[in-house]
Structure formats: structure tokens, C-alpha cells
Design a protein around this nucleic acid. Structure first.
Length: 884
RNA sequence: GGGCAGUUAGCUCAGUUGGCUAGAGCGUCUCGUUGACGUCGAGAAGGUCACUGGUUCGAAUCCAGUACUGCCCACCA
């Protein structure tokens, strides 16, 4: 027997994956006329292991990819990893810290070597995990953002942007992480609520408020609102104020930035260490002096505190100021947000430094354009507004626009070691007037003075600069490769909504520049995976964190995939817990057993019909019913998948398989001569339709059915109108309903479910009931079944009996006098009341002039039918009550 | 402060353009093992669709407001 009693996923998965991969089935087909379908896998950071977020991503993308491949598209799913400069560097720093080393101890070169080794190991882990999930991606095209070719693309874009004036170098205030010793982009800063002291300091005649007295050493400008009656007169004046290290001359300036209602309405400013103050200083042409350095320490301006960590000396400084009588009062428990580095949670020190920026507002001539067109910002907004890029769900468009519209110039230089070096060299020759050399290739000498003493800019690029090129750098750009021509723009970008800004927006931006194209036509955003309680799963809390690999070894990859897809809708978070995965595993096992049973039937049938030609070919009522439902399933599942309704598609197949196919079709077939062709067709259609969701078990079954090829390469089922038998399908439904009614009647009256009982059915559909007599007897556990066309006196007189009525069939069950009918009587009374209420509602509706005049005709006739049905039903119920 | 979601059965969620007596899975209870599957089968109980108004013949669905929950953005010295 090829089929074991239960499906053991771990016995099949690795082997199946190897066979798929080896066969080349993951590569896009070269079939003529095949439409391209492309997904670029969002490259996981090369920092370690995959989590459930990646698992969701892989499951959804694999579903799309397998669906399109089966539909005949030339389907490319390109995998890869991201070097993730800051994240990876931090990770390796933690690793070497265990050995008591810092990156400075090792030096740049040695440290980078170590990072390289680490990345290699990490990539292997990731590759293995991606495979474990069953992802059918093309490994022959795997890419890494830091590999030579992709690095070329990075330099190329940089140089082009520089030449177009979109990249510039400037002194600006930036977010600085003193631990990473690097800048951070605005969106790489996170905020956390903090309770702290709020200090009111005496500044001459003013009282100013601050949470950071340690930045105030050099403050000598007071800002007040120009309309503030309290200070209006003093604007423009200078005053001498006693301050931390002696008297300073302070100037009073009027600016609307001062909030009259906050604190005392007066503030001093620290231009070098605060974004707002920096703007203010620029506006008023004030001096900008740095007092905190790159390590977060105070410099010589801080007097006795020089060289010490700025935040650490706060208490001591306040003590000193108190002594000098400079502290007015201190407010405790002041709530404010503290800015933190998103990679290491260190408080940010804003400071002024020289950095590289991308100008997002400058208009430029795009690729293929004759004149100067729009800015990066405007272009990126336009492509989404014009639906060249469609975001699913579309509510995220609003978020996207809001972010784009408020985008400032993007700081792209980082003082991180690991990453793409900025392709700029400075001449260190005799002349000091030489321009920096910006070049994709390492220059040999200075173009101006000919000196060979060149030094490359020590900084590296923001990691999102390179991942922003992901859709095309992976396809060979800047060369115009066949892959680039065929697969770009890509079809769908599937990712979590949490990186809409970090990545998605930047890809749109960069692709607009480099190709004057959109990177993808559709963005599908999935939600975050949460615990059953809705909490975030975090690695730091193993209690809440589920490891995808554990779940795969316990329940199988198919079960994990299914549990993450069913019940999820785009953009909404997914709650995941083990019971859910177990339920999916049960379903996977159900498919397995359905197939196992079908194969048993087929083999038995073959044995019986051996030599003879008595193979059944005529379609039974049941066959026509299941074929009809199958066509309907194909239609709606295909439509759902095309519309990114993965959960709907999955649940429909789930329901069809479990209920229509297993619970009814297979149960019916047990007592009948089988139509092997239909049984096989329906089973194989199920396997094909569900394959994108649960690739492993379907492939394992496919093989056990005797196929030599892969189910993953089968053609996607299409509706065959010749197999739609609407009337017959409806007829069989009557039988199904009747059997349900019989079962309910038995259960409600505690009639032993095993015991065979006599029964009478009265219905105008007696012909159909007659045709399915065997099935009714078997599934209803009936010993003697009487089927009558209409009520006769004899049947009427049968006593004692239990009676029920459903879907045009009256069910009459003779019982002994001893049976307790009180519960049935109560049920009957309740039901009568129920239906009477229903009739009242319906007839009320139908006698409402407004309703009859305004409602659409089909709704009215539907209600009329319902009323008739209800009336029949109540008559039956009332007549039945006489027997109770 | 601005914005976006969500609120439907004990739990997780469906419910398309307004129109079945509001559904599914899990869990619970009862009963059961009939030729695949105990990772199984049959049946039942369980809902004022958060609240208040409005539009409409008709609202879980549309509109306005309220409450609670979650998230994103901005950040006040």
C-alpha cells in the first residue's frame, strides 16, 4: 500500500522539494506567448534566522507563484538576501563582544572579513528555511544586495544621480546614533514614551523649560512669540545673564515657533542639537556650535564636564546649577517621547555633520525624456495616484501619500563599515582645489592635478539605497539583459505593511529615477503575525514566539502555510497559535485520506471489472451533482486568487473537500457502483486547486495516484460547461436534506444512531428519493424505507410516529408507545411559533405598499416563494403535532 | 495633535453592489464507530451584529456622532 494510514509530512517534504528543484521546475518557462509573472522575494536580512513574518510572506508569494505557473505564465520568483548594513554590523558586533572585542579593536578590514563570514552562514540558514516552507523560487537566479554585480548597480545609480544634481553633500542636522556612530534616516528613528524631570531654569529675566539641561551650555538666544504681550517689548534687545560658566550675552528674538502656552512661553535654543532649533538658527542667521560629539560626549564647551557623556552628567550639572541658583523649579514625571535608534535602542543625539543627501524635490530629466520633468517626490506620488502601482488594500495609499508628501531630502550616508562604500574620492595631492571624484569605477588619479593620492569617502550607503534597486538590479541592470526586458516591471510586490516606507516607497522612488518605470504593478501588503492574545511576537520573549521550523517539524509545512493564510485578509494582522496549525494539519490529513480511499476504490473497481467490460461510464445523479459543484468551485477559486482573496479561495476548497467531497460524495459512493472517471477527475481537480496552498501533500498524493509528472506543473483547471448539471444538482440536494432531517429527528429523540429503523418518506420528489433509496437507507440507518408520492390515509393513520418536514420531504418515523415525545412536542411548538413569526414578517412586508412598489421584482418574488414555503411548512408542522 | 483600522457565537474570523429566520472553523455538550481518516462521524446549544441617531419599503452592511481597542505619522522646548 502506497498510502499509510496517516500523512506524515516530515517523511515526504524534503524529498519532494529536492525533486522539484532538481527538475528545474522552479525556473520560468520559455514557452512562446506565455505572459511573464514576476515576484521579487523581499530579501530577508542576512542576520540570522527567519521568523513567522517571513513564513507568511513565503506562503502568500508561493501561492501566487504556483497559481500563475499552473495557469501557464512564465513565472519568475527570485530569491535573495539583503546585506542590511546596520543590522548586520550590529549583530556581528554583538558576536565579537563575546570574545571581548570591538570593531575598532579589529580594524575595518578584519571586521568586514568577519562580517562576510557571518553573512555566509546566515545565508545558508535562510536558504534552508525558505526551502523548508516549500517555496518554489528560482535558486539559479538568487541574488544578494552586496554581491559584485548589484554593487555595480548601486554605484551606477549614485553616479548618475550625482551628475543629475540629485545627490549632494551638505552640512545638516541629522539623527545620530552615538552607539552605532552613524546617521540614521528620519524613519529609522523610533520614539518611546519616557517619564522624566522637566527643568525650569532661570535665564536672566526669563524662565526657560527643558528636559536636557546638558545641551544648554552655549545657549545665548531667547525665542519668544512676536505676539506675546509679556515679551513683545524686549524683542531685538540684548541682556547679560548669569549662566552655567559665567555671564553670557543673550539676544531676544521673536519667532512664531515659540508656543505662548507652553511653559513660560520663552525658550533658548541649541541649534547644533535640535532639529527645530537648527531651522530657527538658519532662519535668523545664528551661529551653530557643536557641543556634543559623535560618541555622545560633551566637548570643550562644557568646561569641567568636557569628555563626559552628555546624558550621564545631567544630575551633576543640575546640582551645580541649583547651587548657582539657576534652577527655578523641577517638574517630576514629565511625559515626553524620547528618540531611539531603531536598531539598537540608543537615544539619538541630533547633531550637525557633513553628509550625502538625495534631493527629492529637484526636477530632473528622466530616462528617455527630452525635457526636465518632475521631481522624485512628485513622480512617486503620481504613479500611485494614477494607479500605475496599485496598493492592496487601497487604504494604504493614503498612508503612502502622506509620507511621500512630507518627505525631506533623504540622508543616504552612514558611518557604518559594512555596506556599499560611497563612490567618491577626494584628492589628497598638493592642490587643495581639486573637486571630489565621483565615479562608478575606482579612479587611478586625480583628473585635475594628476595626483595618485586619492582617498575614498569612508562612509557607506544607507542599506535601503541598494534594496531600493532590488527589482531591477537583480535582473542585470544597468545592462539591458533579456531578463530585465522580460520580467520588469515586476507583477506583484508582496510584503508586510510595516516596511511600506522603508522599502516599498524607496523602490518606487529609485526605479522612477533609474528606469523611469514602476518597479511593480501591484503591492500586496500582509499584516503582522500576532499571538492569540493579539500581542506582537518578539524574539526577546520566547513565550510568545513561535518558531516556524518547530511548527514545520511538528505539523508539516503545508499545515503551517494553511494556518497563516486562512482567516487572513490583506493589511490586517494575523493571530496564530498552535491549535490553529493543528486544525490545518487535520485538514491536510483529510485530503490524504480522501485520496487514500479513492485509490482503494479505484483499485477494487479495477479488480472487479477485470476482463469484463462492465466499467461504469454513465453519470449518476451523485456524479452530476459533484461535477457541478466542482465547476462552481473552479470558477470561484480562480476568481478569488486573481483578486488576492487567498483566504476565501482556501476556505472554499477546504469546505468543498471536507463536506461536499468527503462527507457526501464519498459516502454516497460507498454503496454504489463507482464511476472511476468522475471520482478521479474530482479528486485531481481538488489536488490542483489546493496545490498552491499545500504543495507537499498534493504532490505526494499525485505520485501515489501513479502520475510520473508533478502536480505543480499541471494545467490550472478551467470550467467545463458540459459538466454543469444545475437541475440534477438541485435534485440531489433534496436527498441530502432529507438524510439530514432523518438524522436530526433520530438524535433529538435519542434513538440509537446505530439501530436500523423503519421509516416513511412522503414527497412529490419521490422519484428522486427512489433513485437514491440505497443511500438513504444506508446513511439514515433505515431498515424498511417506504417512499410515497403523496400522503395517503394509511400513512396519515400511522401511530405513534415522529414526524418532521424539510425541503419538500415529509419524514415519518414510527416509534413505540414508550418513547418520550415531550421534547419533540416542545420542539414542535417552538418551531410553529417561529415559523408563524416568520410568516407574519413576510406577509407584513408583502402587504406594505411601499415595499411592493419600490423593491426590485426578484426580491419580491423571492419573498413570495418563501412565504409559500413557510405556509406549507407550518401546515405540516401543525398536522404533525397531532401525533405527538 | 493628525490619520487609519477594528468592535458580529466562549475563542479566531467570514459576511462582495443594502434584500435568505446572520455563517464557518475551533472550543463546549450529547450520541456514536457504518468499507479512508479518532488528525474521524452525527446532532445540539450558543449572537440586542459596541452604542445612539439618521437615510431607506428594508441596515451587520450606507451616513453622522459616541465609547472602547490596536496601529501609523508628527512631535511641544
Amino acid at each position: 500500500m502506497k498510502f499509510e494510514k496517516t500523512y506524515n509530512a516530515s517523511k515526504f517534504e524534503n524529498d519532494i522539494y529536492k525533486k522539484w528543484e532538481k527538475s528545474g521546475a522552479f525556473k520560468p518557462s520559455n514557452k512562446k506567448g506565455a505572459k511573464p509573472f514576476t515576484i521579487m522575494m523581499p530579501p530577508p536580512n542576512a542576520t540570522g534566522t527567519l521568523h513567522l513574518g517571513h513564513a507568511v510572506m513565503l506562503a502568500l508569494e508561493d501561492i501566487m507563484v504556483r497559481f500563475h505557473r499552473m495557469k501557464g505564465d512564465s513565472t519568475l520568483w527570485l530569491p535573495g538576501t539583503d546585506h542590511a548594513s546596520i543590522a548586520t554590523q550590529n549583530k556581528v558586533e554583538k558576536v565579537i563582544a563575546v570574545e571581548g572585542l570591538t570593531r575598532h579593536d579589529m580594524g575595518r578590514e578584519k571586521f568586514l572579513k568577519r562580517v562576510g563570514q557571518f553573512v555566509k552562514g546566515s545565508q545558508n540558514t535562510i536558504r534552508n528555511q525558505v526551502r523548508k516552507m516549500g517555496s518554489s523560487c528560482d535558486w539559479s537566479r538568487e541574488r544578494y544586495t552586496f554581491e559584485p554585480h548589484l554593487s555595480t548597480a548601486v554605484s551606477e545609480v549614485f553616479v548618475r544621480m550625482y551628475n543629475d544634481g540629485l545627490i549632494y553633500r551638505g552640512h545638516r542636522i541629522v539623527n545620530w546614533c552615538p552607539r552605532c556612530e552613524s546617521t540614521l534616516a528620519d524613519d529609522e528613528v523610533t520614539y518611546k514614551e519616557e517619564r522624566t524631570q522637566f527643568y525650569y531654569l532661570k535665564y536672566g529675566p526669563f524662565v526657560i523649560g527643558t528636559v536636557r539641561p546638558e545641551t544648554k551650555f552655549l545657549d545665548k538666544v531667547i525665542i519668544v512669540h512676536p505676539d506675546d504681550e509679556r515679551y513683545k517689548e524686549s524683542i531685538g534687545k540684548k541682556v547679560m545673564v548669569p549662566w552655567i560658566d559665567g555671564d553670557v550675552e543673550a539676544t531676544i528674538i521673536g519667532d512664531k515657533a515659540a508656543d505662548m502656552d507652553f511653559g513660560t512661553g520663552a525658550m533658548t535654543i541649541t541649534p547644533a542639537h535640535d532639529f527645530i532649533d537648527f531651522d530657527l538658527a538658519k532662519r535668523h542667521g545664528l551661529e551653530i556650535i557643536q557641543i556634543i560629539d559623535e560618541k555622545g560626549n560633551l566637548n570643550h564647551h562644557a568646561g569641567e564636564f568636557a569628555g563626559q557623556n552628555a546624558r550621564a552628567i545631567r544630575k551633576k550639572l543640575v546640582a551645580k546649577m541649583t547651587e548657582k541658583g539657576l534652577v527655578d523649579h523641577i517638574e517630576e514625571n514629565y511625559v515626553h517621547n524620547i528618540a531611539l535608534c531603531y536598531r539598537c535602542d540608543t537615544p539619538i543625539e541630533p547633531l550637525v555633520s557633513q553628509q550625502w543627501f538625495i534631493n527629492v524635490d529637484k526636477k530632473f530629466k528622466g530616462v528617455g525624456e527630452k525635457t526636465v520633468g518632475k521631481s522624485l517626490k512628485d513622480r512617486s506620488i503620481e504613479v500611485v495616484r494614477k494607479k500605475k502601482v496599485e496598493i492592496v488594500p487601497d487604504r494604504f495609499e493614503k498612508t503612502y501619500f502622506n509620507w511621500m508628501e512630507n518627505l525631506h531630502d533623504w540622508c543616504i550616508s552612514r558611518q557604518i563599515w559594512f555596506g556599499h562604500r560611497i563612490p567618491v574620492w577626494y584628492c589628497k595631492g598638493a592642490s587643495t582645489k581639486c573637486e571630489p571624484i565621483v565615479s562608478a569605477k575606482t579612479p587611478l588619479k586625480c583628473m585635475n592635478c594628476g595626483s595618485k593620492k586619492l582617498e575614498q569617502d569612508p562612509d557607506t550607503l544607507d542599506t535601503w539605497f541598494s534594496s531600493g534597486l532590488w527589482t531591477f538590479s537583480t535582473l542585470g541592470w544597468p545592462k539591458n539583459t533579456p531578463d530585465l526586458k522580460k520580467f520588469h516591471p515586476t507583477s506583484v510586490l508582496e510584503t508586510g505593511y510595516d516596511i511600506l516606507f522603508f522599502w516599498v516607497a524607496r523602490m518606487i522612488l529609485m526605479t522612477q529615477y533609474a528606469l523611469n518605470e514602476v518597479p511593480f504593478k501591484t503591492v500586496y501588503l500582509h499584516g503582522l503575525v500576532r499571538t492569540r492574545e493579539g500581542k506582537k511576537m518578539s524574539k526577546s520573549n520566547p513565550e510568545t514566539c513561535i518558531d516556524p521550523l518547530d511548527m514545520i517539524s511538528k505539523y508539516g509545512a503545508d499545515a503551517l502555510r494553511l494556518s497563516m493564510v486562512i482567516g487572513g485578509t490583506p493589511g490586517n494582522d494575523i493571530r496564530l497559535y498552535e491549535e490553529k496549525i493543528a486544525a490545518s494539519r487535520n485538514f491536510v490529513n483529510k485530503i490524504w485520506n480522501a485520496a487514500r480511499f479513492a485509490v482503494m476504490q479505484i483499485e477494487e473497481e479495477k479488480k472487479q471489472s477485470k476482463g469484463t467490460k462492465n466499467r461504469k461510464t454513465k453519470l449518476s445523479l451523485t456524479d452530476k451533482w459533484i461535477l457541478t459543484l466542482t465547476q462552481e468551485l473552479i470558477k470561484s477559486v480562480t476568481k478569488d486568487l486573481e483578486n488576492y482573496k487567498f483566504s476565501d479561495a482556501g476556505s472554499k476548497i477546504y469546505d468543498f473537500t471536507w463536506n461536499s467531497f468527503c462527507a457526501w460524495y464519498l459516502e454516497f459512493s460507498k454503496g454504489e457502483q463507482k464511476n472511476i472517471a468522475v471520482l478521479t477527475e474530482v479528486l485531481e481537480t481538488i489536488l490542483k486547486l489546493i496545490h498552491p496552498f499545500v504543495p507537499y501533500v498534493t504532490e505526494a498524493i499525485w505520485k501515489n495516484l501513479g502520475h510520473k509528472d508533478f502536480v505543480m506543473l499541471q494545467k490550472w483547471p478551467v470550467v467545463d460547461k458540459k459538466k454543469l448539471f444545475i437541475t440534477q444538482a438541485r435534485e440531489l440536494q433534496i436527498v441530502v436534506d432529507a438524510i439530514c432531517a432523518i438524522r436530526t429527528l433520530r438524535q433529538e429523540n435519542a434513538i440509537d444512531i446505530v439501530k436500523k429503523i423503519p421509516l416513511t418518506l412522503v414527497s412529490s420528489h419521490s422519484k428522486i428519493l427512489e433513485e437514491k433509496r440505497d443511500a438513504i437507507e444506508r446513511l439514515g440507518r433505515i431498515s424498511e424505507l417506504t417512499i410515497a408520492n403523496k400522503m395517503s390515509e394509511e400513512i396519515e393513520a400511522m401511530k405513534p410516529t415522529l414526524r418532521t418536514f424539510c425541503a419538500g420531504v415529509e419524514v415519518i418515523l414510527p416509534v413505540s408507545d414508550l418513547i418520550d415525545v415531550s421534547s419533540q412536542r416542545a420542539k414542535n411548538i417552538e418551531e410553529i411559533a417561529n415559523v408563524e413569526k416568520y410568516i407574519a414578517t413576510l406577509s407584513g412586508k408583502l402587504s406594505n405598499k411601499n415595499y411592493v412598489e419600490r423593491a426590485p421584482a426578484d426580491i419580491i418574488s423571492q419573498d413570495k416563494d418563501r412565504l409559500e414555503e413557510a405556509k406549507t411548512r407550518i401546515e405540516k408542522l401543525k398536522s404533525q403535532s397531532r401525533y405527538l
